[in-house]
Design a binder for these strands. Sequence first.
DNA 1: CTGAAAGCGCTTACAG
DNA 2: CTGAAAGCGCTTACAG
Lengths: 362, 362
Amino acid sequence: LIKRFIKTKMGPKMKRRPRQSDVAALAAVSPAIVSLVINDRADSNVRISPETRQRVWDAVRELGYVANPIARKLAGNQNRLLGVFTYEAIFPLEYRNFYYPFLLGIEEEVQAQDYDLVLFTRASGPDGRRSIYQDSINSLQITDGAILLGVHENRSELSRLVREGFPFVFIGRRELPDGAISYVTADYSEATRTIVEYMVRQGHQHIAYLRPPENREATLDREAGYRLAHQQLGMPLIEQHIFAGDAEEVTPQLIERFFAAGITAFLAENTPLVRRMLEIADQLGKSAPRDFSLALLGDHTEEINPVPDITTFLIPRKEMGKEAVRLLVDLLAHPDEHEARQIALPCTFVAGQTVAAPFHAE
Amino acid sequence: LIKRFIKTKMGPKMKRRPRQSDVAALAAVSPAIVSLVINDRADSNVRISPETRQRVWDAVRELGYVANPIARKLAGNQNRLLGVFTYEAIFPLEYRNFYYPFLLGIEEEVQAQDYDLVLFTRASGPDGRRSIYQDSINSLQITDGAILLGVHENRSELSRLVREGFPFVFIGRRELPDGAISYVTADYSEATRTIVEYMVRQGHQHIAYLRPPENREATLDREAGYRLAHQQLGMPLIEQHIFAGDAEEVTPQLIERFFAAGITAFLAENTPLVRRMLEIADQLGKSAPRDFSLALLGDHTEEINPVPDITTFLIPRKEMGKEAVRLLVDLLAHPDEHEARQIALPCTFVAGQTVAAPFHAE
DNA sequence: CTGAAAGCGCTTACAG
DNA sequence: CTGAAAGCGCTTACAG
């Protein structure tokens, strides 16, 4: 590493900054008056003559006085700092990361709400993984409240946060055994229901659902939507049509059994499952939407367009970020109401090209 | 926008945040001791027994005490918070944004240096554009120091920052009329010199340089490298071979004149200039590297691979971010030395496929 | 209408 | 080794 160091003189050290008391002295008023005038506090039961205000402002200008924001915050008991905590690095190597659109929305709304943002880079244990509690201390406490996000959350930390009453909002639904938390999620259930309904309207009677084995909330929500659609449409739900497993566990035999059982459409929860499905279909000489229909339950984050024009729904990530900030600010505005609030935002259906009327129906 | 609100009870209201005096009381020591133990001030002429330290830490853990960063800043003038200020949104709509790799490096190094990061989303004026001074208050002051970056900086704000003695490091060379600032830049001059030398070694004798009209430091540095190369290689430099203008101002006539004057290779400072050059060359029935050679002076940030395999150099953005943090931390460690420091990091030459021996030389 | 005073939660000399 | 005290620069009741 070659570096060039060039040293130059900086300007002379600044003289002491004028403070409130200097202004007060020059304007011949008490410091309190200076504070009231500068902050234009009309609410206080104090009437200040225009002449006095003028004197104060003149003194401010003459001295070039600027209030110290730190002192202001200490005295005013708020710092308008909002935290963002992620269990992984917040600026990850992959550009199109999962987090990105959320951060976009968070930044935008935090700016609109007139807060600054604190990123907890320091909150990492010896193993490099981040955690909220360092030496059993809640490191988020330097902010007024925080937005948490990430898939590898530590639920016992969340529980502890709730117990301590620290204001926070999670992005994504998270249910804890010992109490609800505030969160903003996407309405996966409704989005999935919509896709099933769309398939049924195209003529499909038997729709398989390929889901990961983990019972994460986001998966449970999708499954709930799948079940709800069947119920609402009066279609019998066959439990065997729900496959819970990783992509590697999806075998040609499984898919052939599905076809043999009259399945004409597939719901895949994630990109690996979609890929595996298409791979097997290809082996079987079948393609979508000619021989079967296929939809992905939520837009992919890992890569661009792994499957072009797939039927899917868009997760409103940016809007979720914004909404999380709004919710948090609202929580902070009403510290007396000890209630967790949950918000589900609608996804956007994308018709795509992988769902069509079933072959036998043509 | 459809939202579902579900209300549930939160845990009991958080009790008052513990403060230093609470810890002191529980540990049966004075607040001063708590401060000394927590900040591990071995320097002070105070010896504290291991038992006392243990009691303090136990009390800290039991109460979940976290020092108030604002109070810390007011009293001790430091709080291990580093700021990042950008004149544009920090999480911009374009994923592959200019800022991204810098932030990557900043986050990584800030974490390594055990600081937290403050993003100044609030520092935006009425017009939506951000500015450091709000009502003439330096909003960066809540942090110990800050990294600034962005192309649309306000130089009078930078001057003011210098005058006030606020510690900061700019990413990119910036020269102010009234005093040097600390910055970390890429060594554009050396990188450009290297490319010219590379072209000359391939046999090119006359190399044109297309640069934007603005005299930004990054442009001046490249031009300096271009000139230096000519001087070192004993090649006469013809001023007309430097074209300063936007892409739209580059005309087929200009390029034809260059060819007629014996130019066999082109340096283009940015992607629009490269594109324009290739467009015109195409019109003239010429292509690189067959009929002419072409290099881009620095990797493109706007989009992926606008020109595959172009000869160029990589700007060490991530490393610049890390180096900026290191420099800032160093500046903070030596507040007495009122010196600005400048660091230039080397770029990486990429041979690419658009430079070859000139046609007439074959 | 205005001033004197307490307090925000820390750090850092300064005495003992 | 430890404690009492001052001070950082503000805001906000509370008296007058």
